[in-house]
Structure formats: C-alpha cells, structure tokens
C-alpha cells in the first residue's frame, strides 16, 4: 500500500540578514535531509527539542514552505506541484494561543474557515455543531475567543483543523502551554482521531506524549532524523547496556573526547549538578566501561561514581545531544 505521507530527503535552508548598514547574509540549515513514510491510519510522531527542524518539516509537508531540496508527497501527490489538491485533503493544527480571530466568536472563526475550506454551505451548521460537541466547546461557541483559556483555544484549533474532515492531519506541538489536565484531554482527542481512521503526523518535544500516542516515532535533532521506530523498539535499543555516572569537579572538553573514544561507549553528556558536574557515559550491551572511564579521567578531580540501568530519557538525551552538527 502506498504511504499517505512521504518525505524524501527534505532539505530546507533559511537565509537571514543581519546588520544595520552592512548587511550580512547568513544561511541556516534547518532541515538537512529528512526522509520518512507514514502509512494510512498511522499516528507518527516527530520528536525532538526546540529548533530541531520539526516545524520546518511540517511546513514543507503542508505546502507552506517549498523545500530547498528533496520532495514530499501527501496521498501520492507532490506538495509543491499539487499544492491546492493537497490543501483540500489535509488539516493543520499548531499549538499556542495564536492563530484565531480574537474579536470573533468560536462560531464565527469556524464558519470563516469552513468557507475557506469549501465546506458545503448546507452542511456547515451541522458540521460546526458536530465539531463543537467533539471538542467540548458546545455552549461557549458564541463567546469571543479573547476570553478563552489556552486549553479552549487549542480545542478550537483542533475543530478548525477538522472542518473539512481531512483524511490527513498535521499537529504541530498541539499541547504546547496547556495545563496537565487539558493536555490529557487533548491527547485523548488525538488518539480518538487515530481511531477514526485519520493519518496523523504529530510533533512534540514531550517524550511521554510521543510514547503514549504514537505508533512510530522519529527522533529529530539538528535537522536530521537520528532514530526511528516504534516506542517499544526505541526503548529496547537502550534498555540494554549500562550507564555510568561520575561526579567531577571541573572537566575539560578534551577529557570528554577521551571518554567518547572508549570502545562500546555510545554517548557522553555532561550535566551541571549542584557545585559539581556529572558525566553520564552510556555504553552498549556487553560493555562495562566504569574502569576505563576512571582511568581516562586521570588528573580530573572525581567524586561519587555510580552505575545504573538506562532510561528512555537517557536514550532521547543521547540522541539529540550527540547528533553530529555537520556531516
């Protein structure tokens, strides 16, 4: 079966200019070769820190940005050549409290976009009521949006994205800034979308969110996909092996590099903790690097040393911090 969403080696470069009188032009590579395929009815997550390139990737897929290289298809059609065709069949929802007409009611906001999305005039009223029920805003729809809470705005956004009943949905950090209870409701709503047979691409920087919602996850860092698989697979890839934590007092970069070169070490990160730093060394299964680590830290003032099982967070941190900046 052909994939519903297909990204083929997407690249995107931004040109920015700085300086007042002498303009300097600067190129920023936001996305450096992203490829993935999403099948019908799948809920696929792009997980990564802020600035990793998630939003840029989504914007290319929803026809808001033309890739500098590579291509993308939605439902089999190229997003650049068939932009209008694609737009009719996708919904787009982003997080945060922008993107609404503050001085209009929820009803008017929805009605306007129903018009822009070509929802049959005769069907509009029923459709709007249906969606208001779905997102739980029924009864509040005549109030102006300026009085809405974050969570209500976000639910209104989702209703807007669903107006034309698109088979494909792009959700860009939909729970951004929503309180835990509201975020949980939103997640339930997202998972019901999947049950309704929609193909969903979700971006988030919350790991547990991706974990609970997604069928498959791609971890994005510095414009590239650094890992891809089901949540279970991603966990499995780190559930084995071991982590050594060493408390140190002042460590130089070259010492960190020495640790990285130890055989079997997959990632080294340094975190400040209280008045010291903690070096976290992750090793592949079958390697116990503790001895070697201490040996290579010769000359560095060392405190407590401990060994533990890796967590999913270790995997994520390792993936997004150790991704090579250029290649």
């Amino acid at each position: 079966m052909a994939p519903v969403i297909e990204a083929l080696d997407l690249h995107r470069t931004y040109k920015t200019t700085t300086g007042t009188f002498r303009r300097r032009s600067l190129e920023v590579e936001a996305v450096r070769g992203v490829s993935f395929e999403i099948g019908e009815g799948e809920l696929f997550g792009l997980l990564g820190p802020n600035g990793a390139g998630k939003t840029t990737t989504i914007k290319m897929l929803i026809t808001l940005l033309i890739p500098t290289a590579g291509s993308a298809r939605v439902l089999g059609r190229d997003v650049v050549d068939h932009a209008m065709w694609v737009r009719q069949r996708i919904g787009y929802v982003f997080g945060g409290d922008r993107g609404l007409y503050e001085r209009l009611s929820a009803w008017d906001n929805l009605r306007y976009f129903a018009e822009l999305y070509g929802v049959e005039p005769r069907r509009q009223k029923a459709r709007l009521e249906e969606l208001l029920d779905l997102v739980g805003l029924r009864g509040r729809e005549r109030e102006r949006v300026e009085g809405y809470s974050r969570g209500m705005r976000q639910r209104l956004h989702i209703a807007r994205g669903l107006l034309h009943d698109p088979p494909v949905l792009f959700l860009d950090e939909p729970t951004l800034g929503v309180d835990p209870v509201g975020a949980r409701e939103l997640r339930a709503m997202i998972s019901s979308l999947k049950d309704a047979g929609k193909t969903v691409l979700l971006t988030t920087h919350y790991m547990f969110e991706a974990d609970t919602l997604c069928d498959r996850i791609a971890v994005v860092a510095r414009g590239r996909i650094v890992a891809e698989g089901t949540p279970r697979e991603l966990k499995a890839s780190v559930a084995s092996g071991s982590v050594v934590e060493v408390e140190v007092y002042g460590i130089e970069d070259d010492a960190v590099e020495r640790l990285r070169s130890i055989e079997g070490v997959t990632a080294v990160t340094v975190e400040p903790r209280d008045h010291a730093q903690v070096v976290i060394v992750q090793a592949a299964p079958g390697h116990e690097p503790a001895q070697e680590v201490l040996a290579r830290l010769d000359g560095v003032s060392v405190g407590r040393v401990s060994s533990r099982e890796p967590t999913l967070e270790d995997a994520y941190v390792a993936l997004v911090t150790d991704a090579p900046a250029t290649q």
């Binding site: 009719q88 945060g96 993107g99 609404l100 822009l116 999305y117 070509g118 807007r160």
Partner: peptide, 17 residues
C-alpha cells in the same frame, strides 16, 4: 496574530481570501 499561514494553507485562492 498567527493566521496568515492558516489562510495560505487553506484551499481557497489567496487573493480571494
């Protein structure tokens, strides 16, 4: 107000919006 992108992403010709 963050609406421009939503307007562009809609399948109605932009000038008509």
């Amino acid at each position: 107000v963050g609406i421009l992108e939503l307007l562009v992403a809609a399948p109605t010709p932009f000038w008509l919006t």
